[in-house]
Design a protein around this nucleic acid. Structure first.
Length: 565
RNA sequence: GGGCCUGUAGCCUAGCCUGGAUAGGGCGACAGCCUUCUAAGCUCUGCAAAGAGAGCUGUAGAUCGAGGGUUCGAAUCCCUUCAGGCCCGCCA
């Protein structure tokens, strides 16, 4: 499109000086034109109304190689591009670049660490984690596609008071049993048990703290129990990650970092950068940086979450020399991250301004807020299973001759695709209401809708049965639906760039809906296989390109494609 | 009490950063359509009833939370205000 913009600028420049590419807009409605120049800005200088100026420019302009006609509409000069030329440019490019169509060089040579997931090993992951996992993976994929080197980093929160609570409950009431269900769920039950019990017996809270002290002191029995239960949970997590297709480049464990965090804190205190309060806890004074003070080491010397986070940031910088480190964490921790970043600044780490908190809204349920302590959460595994089952039923209702294997493969792609798309399609700052029964439908703006469009194209291409030709008579693509499809294809890179700049995969999701809609409108208006030779050839190339771009977009969101649904 | 975020049709949502042409989608409702999906079968390089649909079209539905300001022009920028969410732990 840039080429066409430049031409429009060139044409208009004959009448009005100092026009830049960036002044050219794309009209909301294609009926108005393909490119537009608003004339408000020239009004003052030329002492004429925008409408007059627009008319002047239009009257004074001649069509070119790329531009077909120039018309003034109100205060706008609208350019109509030569559709065949445009289709030729776009379709040839897609067919040539294939899976790298839309890729930009924005982040060439730059490294970004993307931390996400951060599970706690005292309980299974819930639906909120699914949003995190899916968002983190998609952001990483979008950055990769924009030529950044994205490092997917997971930090397992495998130590701390909450872990001890599950452990204590198991010690008291677990009778040394082995897991009789998915092991992370088994452990999570003891966390709930602890909290239920603590309501009547608050003294067990103190017991948990005692256990944490023993743990930090390296008590053999406690460490053995900890190891055993953590391994159970981690095994359960692996299964969940596997189902979601979540992968990491690096996994770190809080238990291996906190000691070094404590060292940094103690050094910071000796240097006078950190203070000690009356009880003996070390804290950072941050008022001058616009955030409340924050304790970084308990009075009894045990570490808290931020202790290891300080070291982890430093470690990552040493390891990767990152240009940015992004923390994908829920909005309830907005203040925490402002404090963490301020602490890093206080401690004199020059990279502190490269740290960024990618905040996202909560996942709510119709019944209200989830509380893991009370066990009122919807587990990630349950929702995955529910969507899989739902997809399976839909497939079974349509086909009866598929192998069990094939049904499961499709159900998996569709069910997981639906969850991912649902989690990614809206602005991440907003809370979402997740009604397991109603929220995810397969109709409307959904993952399956996009997958279905992809499958439809596969079906046509399969029936066509011949190799797709990269050349065609592009002037035959003359209907509104075809031209709209071409135009939509040309916009892919803009949306990917937007997604990368804003760390916002929802831009890609919206684009895929738009492209799918454009395709389905085309599908109904324009037959492919029954057309005469030349037109068929052109349309085949067109849908082949659509399929490619759908694939490229779905890949960014981590959603699988199916040749048949 | 303070800080941060959100408010767009019955419901969900895009647009807000970077102000411009009638606020774009989706669900649900109503009225239609269907040729590529699945297809029994047939006079079988083709034609296909019917079905399904996660397909398409149209209709109705919006004081862009409210008020004020800036501007030629405000959903978009600024101020005030109301409502909701989150946070203000030596939890994570």
């Amino acid at each position: 499109m840039d080429e066409f913009k430049k031409d429009a600028v060139k044409i208009a420049s004959k009448t009005v000086p100092n026009i830049s590419d960036s002044m050219i807009e794309i009209p909301k409605d294609t009926a108005l034109g393909d490119l537009a120049l608003p004339c408000f800005l020239f009004s003052k200088e030329l002492k004429k109304s925008p409408n007059e100026i627009a008319k002047l420019i239009a009257d004074n302009s001649q069509p070119s190689d790329l531009i077909d006609k120039i018309i003034a509409t109100g205060p706008y000069v609208n350019f109509f591009i030569k559709k065949a030329k445009f289709a030729e440019r776009i379709l040839t490019e897609v067919a040539k670049l294939k899976q790298i169509y839309g890729k930009s060089l924005m982040g060439k040579g730059k490294t970004i660490v993307v931390e996400f997931s951060q599970p706690n090993t005292n309980k299974p992951q819930h639906v909120g984690h699914v949003r995190n996992d899916v968002l983190g993976a998609a952001i990483s994929a979008v950055l990769d596609f924009s030529s950044y080197k994205a490092i997917k980093a997971n930090i397992i929160n495998d130590r701390g008071i909450h872990i001890c609570k599950s452990m204590l409950a198991y010690q008291k009431w677990g009778e040394n049993r082995e897991p009789d269900k998915k092991p992370d769920h088994f452990v999570g039950d003891f966390y709930v048990l602890f909290n239920n019990n603590a309501k009547e017996n608050p003294e067990i809270e103190e017991e948990a703290y005692e256990m944490l002290r023993l743990w930090e002191a390296g008590d053999k029995d406690i460490r053995a129990l900890w190891k055993k239960m953590n391994n159970w949970v981690l095994k359960g997590f692996d299964e969940t990650y596997d189902r979601l297709g979540t992968k990491f480049d690096v996994i770190q464990y809080e238990s291996e970092l906190y000691e070094k965090g404590r060292k940094i804190v103690e050094e910071g205190f000796e240097k006078g950068l950190l203070k000690k309060n009356a009880e003996g806890a070390i804290y950072a004074e941050l008022e001058d940086l616009g955030v409340p003070d924050k304790v970084v080491l308990r009075a009894d010397g045990t570490a808290i979450y931020v202790t290891q986070d300080i070291y982890l940031a430093k470690l990552r910088y040493e390891q990767y020399n990152f240009d940015r480190a992004i923390y994908v964490v829920g909005s309830e921790q907005n203040l925490y991250f402002r404090q963490l970043f301020a602490i890093m600044k206080r401690l004199g780490f020059e990279f502190s301004d490269r740290l960024y908190h990618k905040s996202y809204g909560m996942v709510n349920l119709p019944e209200g807020k989830m509380k893991s302590r009370e066990g009122t959460v919807v587990d990630a595994d349950d929702i995955i299973t529910e969507m899989f089952t739902l997809a399976r039923e839909e497939i079974m209702a349509r086909y009866s001759d598929l192998t069990e294997n094939e049904v499961n493969k499709r159900a998996n792609a569709i069910g997981i695709g639906a969850i991912k798309f649902f989690m990614l399609k809206q602005d991440s700052v907003k809370d979402i209401l997740f009604d397991p029964k109603e929220s995810i439908s397969f109709e409307g703006e959904t993952g399956p809708y996009v997958q279905y469009s992809y499958a439809r194209i596969c079906s046509i291409l399969k029936k066509y049965g011949k190799p797709v030709s990269e050349s065609a008579d592009f002037s035959l693509l003359s209907t509104a639906q075809e031209q709209n499809l071409v135009k939509t294809l040309s916009e892919f890179d803009i949306h990917v760039e937007d997604a990368a700049k804003n760390l916002d995969p929802s831009k890609v999701a919206h684009y895929l809906i738009k492209l799918s809609q454009a395709f389905n409108e085309f599908y109904h208006a324009c037959p492919v296989l029954t057309e005469e030779q030349e037109l068929k050839k052109a349309r085949i190339l067109l849908i082949y390109c659509v399929r490619q771009v759908l694939a490229n977009g779905l890949n960014l969101l981590g959603i699988e494609m199916l040749e048949e649904m």
